[in-house]
Simulated scan of single mutants.
Amino acid sequence: MRTRSVHGGRHELGQNYLIHQPTIDRITALVAATDGAILEIGAGGGALTTALAGLGRDLTAIDIDERRVAALQRRHPAVRVELADALRHPLDAPVIAGNVPFHLTTPILRRLLQRPAWSDAVLLTQWEVARKRAGVGGGTLLTAQAAPWFAFALHGRVPARAFRPMPSVDGGILSITRRGSPLVPLAERRAYERFVGDVFTARGRGMAAILSTVGRMPRPAARRVLDRAGVEHDSLPRELAPTQWAALWSTA
């Protein structure tokens, strides 16, 4: 009898199963505040699956480990349990939830933010990723590029001891909500993302110098653009709020 997945063991799969009931309750409460069918990614041992099933909504749970999928299918006959990879699945439910494999946090987030169908996501990720995506201590390139269409919020830190096996880092609960009224037209998304990328990677001390380089404009002209966007001349890209990025894009 095979005791390992065809993909390897728990470490190869990045599986750190959530065993902390207060965290399970917190994630479930956040999902309960949303509407629509739920897709759980990385269902693993099923602790969160059981709680989400209790909400009485249409629930699909996916996992890449065929052993866990078979066990969940037996335990939850009313839940649609599928063998699938979050990096390939359509991610097309209104609500996405899950304990994201820590080593795949960034690629899953990048893919999620490009998918058009979902409205709300509640994810348990690495603490540093959750903190940075929520803009605590300064925003990141990925967050700034997505901010006109998505709002990020941090809902607490989860200690490493809340998982089995215990990872080397803590987790964090991150929610992402698609904005009903985007700050930048969706048709301009690719161009906007390139602009933000250029600003984050350009040389210069402060936004006046950076914008002068990116926009190929004299420093006084860059300062006028920043004034219209409500951005301090000596601020850094990671300090800008979503509304300031949108205003800068529309005026630069």
Rank of each mutant, 00 (worst) to 15 (best):
M207N: 01
R205A: 14
D227N: 00
G230A: 12
R190P: 03
A222M: 06
L226E: 12
D198T: 15
R224I: 01
M217P: 01
R216Q: 15
R228M: 05
L211A: 06
H233T: 13
R219E: 09
V196F: 06
Y192G: 07
E193P: 11
T213Y: 11
F200Q: 08
A209E: 12
E193Q: 15
L211Q: 05
R224E: 15
M207S: 06
G197M: 02
R194M: 12
R216S: 14
L211C: 08
G230C: 01
P220V: 00
M207E: 04
M217R: 01
G206K: 08
F195R: 04
G206A: 03
T201E: 11
A222V: 05
G206V: 04
S212Q: 00
Y192H: 09
V199Q: 10
R216C: 06
F200K: 05
T201N: 13
D198P: 10
R203G: 15
G204C: 09
R224H: 12
I210P: 03
P220C: 07
A209M: 06
V214P: 03
R224F: 02
H233I: 02
A222H: 07
R224G: 12
M217Q: 09
F195H: 00
T213S: 14
F195D: 10
V196R: 09
R190H: 12
S212E: 13
V214I: 11
A191D: 15
V199C: 09
D198C: 13
L211W: 03
A222N: 07
V231H: 03
I210F: 10
A209C: 07
P220E: 11
A191I: 03
Y192I: 01
S212H: 04
P218A: 07
G230H: 12
A191T: 15
D198R: 15
H233Q: 10
A229M: 05
M217V: 10
S212K: 01
P218C: 02
A202P: 13
R194G: 13
R219V: 03
V231C: 04
A222S: 11
V225H: 10
P218E: 09
R223F: 05
A208Y: 06
E232R: 14
I210G: 00
D198L: 13
V214M: 11
M217S: 00
V214E: 14
R223E: 15
A209G: 01
A229E: 00
G215T: 04
M207T: 06
A229R: 00
L226N: 07
E232I: 01
L226F: 07
A222E: 08
S212V: 04
V214T: 11
G197A: 12
A202L: 12
R190C: 10
G215I: 08
R190D: 15
I210N: 01
Y192D: 06
H233Y: 12
R228T: 13
G204E: 05
R216P: 05
A202S: 14
G197T: 11
F195K: 04
V225N: 04
G215A: 15
D198S: 14
T213A: 14
V196K: 08
S212C: 05
G197Q: 05
V196H: 11
R190A: 15
Y192S: 04
G215C: 10
V225M: 13
G204D: 13
V214F: 13
E193L: 02
R216V: 14
D198Y: 04
R228V: 12
S212G: 12
G206R: 02
R224Q: 14
L211P: 03
A221F: 12
R190K: 10
T201P: 01
A229T: 07
D227F: 00
E232K: 09
R205D: 11
